[in-house]
Structures are given as structure tokens and as C-alpha cells.
Design a protein around this nucleic acid. Sequence first.
DNA 1: AACGCTATTGCAAACTATTTGCATCTGTCA
DNA 2: TGACAGATGCAAATAGTTTGCAATAGCGTT
Lengths: 151, 151
Amino acid sequence: MKGIDQRVTEFEHQLRKAGLRMTQQRRLILRVLAEADDHPDAKGIFTRAFLHDPTLSLSTVYRTMKLLETQGAIERHAFEDGVSRYEHADQQHHDHLIDVETGQVVEFSSPEIEALQAKIAAELGYEIVRHKLELYGRKLGRKGRRKPGEG
Amino acid sequence: MKGIDQRVTEFEHQLRKAGLRMTQQRRLILRVLAEADDHPDAKGIFTRAFLHDPTLSLSTVYRTMKLLETQGAIERHAFEDGVSRYEHADQQHHDHLIDVETGQVVEFSSPEIEALQAKIAAELGYEIVRHKLELYGRKLGRKGRRKPGEG
DNA sequence: AACGCTATTGCAAACTATTTGCATCTGTCA
DNA sequence: TGACAGATGCAAATAGTTTGCAATAGCGTT
């Protein structure tokens, strides 16, 4: 995995090229994202970053997430809980398996499925721009012990 | 395809069994849904239903959609535009291909992909409860004429 | 056909997630 | 270091959805 500092520096160059600035806030948010091994939402990112800089505002997080997404530095996901969740894009493409009981997100990838998708799209007369595959599952061996009302 | 009236009647029995009532509003909304061949959101459903009953309120649409979802009468989708879209569940399982240029939704299904999904989940120690597969694509032969900045 | 009980509705207000206007502040580059 | 444009914080604005409450209307019973 690339070092955090390296990633920040790379992004700084990327920003410069676009005439944009590397600010303390952006640096902090990048750091938080790089350190996250889950898929936090804006508030989650804000909460973590806020610990290091109590002057940070939530709107800056939102603005930064949008910027990062535009720049291709992160990916935004909209799982079924309604909020946007983010993860840094410095990794191979993968899909997600969400544990319906714990909410835990497992990443996986399947070239076979990707190939099938392309084939299906082609048959329908389309080329795939991107896709979203989310499996919602329950751990094997753990039977219907779901808390009522939980998504 | 099942007749609309038949579907409404079936649902009425289903409601009765649960101690719930079949109201004019629910009847109307069911009708709108049954007649829809797209994937309308709450406001869309409201707009169409409102034509037939101008006393209908948007909250009733939301409440009804939630009820219908709980009863398994409809499916709710959250595509990337952020709003919840609905379709009646009286049909086989299928996934969606969304045209990134027009927003048009094409339905398809692939037993092969389903099988692969189950296999992958099993390998990760999960059984699939449900899944969501969305392909975002562009019509073949129509080249990169996408407006810049559009997602 | 009328009655009563309780589910359902309409309305407005509340909520949640996200965006935006604006005055102020701060990177950057000369 | 100074100037300019981009970025920030704050509060207010949006958009989608939910909810409290008083009034209304299904539906089983009489």
C-alpha cells in the first residue's frame, strides 16, 4: 500500500495542475481517508478529522469529498442506508458484500462477473461505463438472529 | 401480466389478513404503480395519482410505499440520483442497466451472474440475502458525447 | 343502515443529508 | 511580502422523507 504522505503529495501535484490549492483541511481529510479501512460517510469523516482540527466544518468535508470524487481520488458509494459513503480510489476495482446483520463491508472482485456484465451489456447494445454490484448477505452458520428493525 | 384489478384485490386480502385497510388512496397508488412501466420516485407517483385524486397527499404516498415494501408488493431501488425509485414486485427478479446519457432504465437478468454471486458469497462465508446489480452504460455507436462534469 | 373502534389521512412541522451565499481568511506565485 | 483568487466557516437554503396530531373513513358488528 502506498504511504499516506506520498498519496497526499501526489494529490497536491494533481491539485496544482488544476489551479487548486492544498490546504490544511484537505490534507487532514486525505489523511483521515487514507487511514480509514472502512467506508465512512461525510459525518464519520468529519468526526474523525474534527479530533485533529476542531475548527474544521462539515461543509468543508462535503466540498472536499466532491472535489476528491471529481479528481478521481475517491469513490462514492450509496449503499442502502441512504447516505453517501466514501473510500479512497488507490486500489483495484472491487465490489462489496455487506453483512446485513453487522453492516460490515467486505470487498471482493470477480473478473468472471465483470466479463459477464460486459457481455450482457453488449447484447443489449450498450458498453459499460461503470457498474455497481452489492451483495447483501448473512454469515453462514448464523441463522436469522437479526435484531428486528435493523437494516 | 396479471390484471390490475386482480392485483389490487389480492393485495386487499393481504392487508385484511394483517388487520389493515384497503383505502381509496392505496387503491389509487397501486393502480398507478401497476400502470407504470418505468421506475418512478415518490413524487412521480404522487403526481400521477394526484391527477385522479387532488386530495391525495405526498405523505400518504410515502407511507404507502413503505407499507407496500414491507408487504413485499414493491421493490425500492436507490439508483445514483439519490432518490428512492419503486417498481411493483409482481415479476421475476431482474437487474438494471441505466443509460448514463438518457437515464433510461433497461431490465435484464442473468442466471449465470446470479450463480457466480452465490459462489463468491459462499467463498467469503456468506449466504446472499439479496443483491443489487446496476450497470451504467452508454449506447454502442454513440461515442463520448457526454456532457463534461456529468456523473 | 347505523355504530364504534382504530387504522389512515392531510397538513404542517420536524428531520436528515447535502448544498450554497457571503464575508473572511489563506495558499500561491510574482 | 503583497495581491489575487481559491477555500473556509457559518448559517441559511434545499431536497427527500418522516412524523405528531386532529379529523376522517374502513370494516366488523349490531
